[in-house]
């Protein structure tokens, strides 16, 4: 027996962390990394005001809707639509999505330039809740965020390398949201007739892969179709207005998707109109909910719940800005605060 063996016996009975302690530690770490405790609703609402994302209430939309109330509709108590004693309106899912489509179609069609940045601010809950800000460069080659641990402003820019990576170089981010310019071009080429659009999304491998990543659903299932459209709607300023409108309309053509009679709160606690699809995946009934702005019916958040999954996200603001790390209307982060880092992985198998 030598000294190393003796030493290995020393305090050899030191206990290891159990699974519960590990989970707690991981949770604490995530919270600290996020630098956030769950935001109060007041803060979230303030952010929305500050970012002034919505282009304003489309009165025309609402007025049209009220007139168009159909017998087969659902009685919906619209949240935040004025006086408390306002009578609930009867809406059908088609009404709601038509209005959302009309609203989307009226949005400015100006496409960002390749080196502009799509800013988004979201409040999301997965294991823990937190506010997340991201900047995607429109050409999809870079993504930026502010270092949550930094004192002062520190913008980290991930450089994903050329759009088509050479052999031996793996690209890390590949989803449609990370490539806004390409995604927009591809979306613009799709048919806008609802059924044809749903079919095109299902058949095109680029879009077939789009999902909330909760679980792999059979690509041809209605739930997967709903999931794809919801994710595409959640992207920041990516679809051309005509296609965005078609996406909203297409939802009412997906079997089993229905409008909930009551407002549903998004992750940030704001009530909105809820369109829901239920699915069975991995032995669990999973509810996916698209939450729409109660006034403009535009995308405002999503929720996935069921089995082990619980995920929700609320859009607090989106905008096109000229610099990474720049908030809408905010100052331009100085060049010294920006760190660009190569984000490709060398791997011969790529």
């Amino acid at each position: 027996m030598d000294e190393l063996t003796k030493l290995r016996d020393f305090r050899a009975d030191t206990a290891a962390l159990d699974a519960e302690q590990l989970d707690a530690g991981a949770r604490r770490l995530t919270e600290q990394i996020r630098g956030t405790t769950p935001a109060r609703r007041r803060t979230a609402a303030g952010d929305v005001l500050r970012f002034a994302v919505a282009t304003g209430v489309r009165r025309a939309c609402l007025a049209g809707l009220t007139a168009a109330a159909v017998t087969a509709g659902v009685l919906v108590a619209l949240p935040g639509s004025g006086a408390r004693d306002e009578p609930a309106r009867t809406l059908t899912i088609a009404d709601v999505l038509d209005s959302a489509a009309a609203h989307a179609a009226a949005a400015p069609a100006k496409e960002p330039s390749a080196h502009q940045w799509l800013f988004s601010r979201e409040y999301g809950c997965m294991a823990t809740c937190g506010t997340q800000e991201e900047w995607y460069r429109y050409d999809g080659n870079q993504k930026a965020f502010r270092d949550p641990m930094a004192k002062g402003v520190r913008v980290l820019v991930n450089d994903f390398g050329p759009r088509v990576a050479p052999a031996g170089l793996c690209k890390i981010v590949e989803d449609a949201g990370a490539r806004p310019q390409e995604t927009r071009a591809r979306l613009a080429a799709l048919p806008t007739e609802p059924r044809a659009l749903l079919e095109a999304l299902r058949e095109d491998p680029y879009f077939a892969a789009v999902s909330t990543k909760i679980d792999k659903l059979p690509a041809s299932s209605p739930a997967a179709a709903f999931d794809r459209v919801v994710v595409l709607l959640s992207l920041t300023e990516t679809a051309p207005p005509r296609t965005a409108a078609a996406l909203y309309r297409a939802i009412s053509y997906i079997p089993g998707v229905h409008l909930l009679p009551r407002p549903v709160k998004d992750a940030a606690g704001r009530p909105g109109l809820a369109v829901e699809s239920t699915q069975r995946a991995a032995g669990h009934d999973i509810r996916s909910t698209l939450i729409l702005d109660p006034k403009t019916y535009a995308y405002r958040g999503l929720r996935v719940e069921g089995g082990p999954w619980k995920y929700s996200s609320a859009r607090l603001g989106v905008a096109v800005v000229d610099h990474p790390g720049q908030r809408p209307g905010g100052p331009v982060p100085p060049p010294s605060s920006i760190t660009v880092r190569p984000f490709t992985i060398k791997d011969p198998s790529c």
Binding site: L22, G25, A26, R27, L29, T30, I33, R34, M126, A127, K143, F145, P148, L156, N158, I172, V173, R341, F343, I345
Partner: peptide
């Protein structure tokens, strides 16, 4: 590398 995008990924390392 991925945790730069998704800090939650760091929890996996934990």
């Amino acid at each position: 590398a991925r945790s730069a995008d998704e800090p939650e990924v760091f929890a996996q390392l934990y």
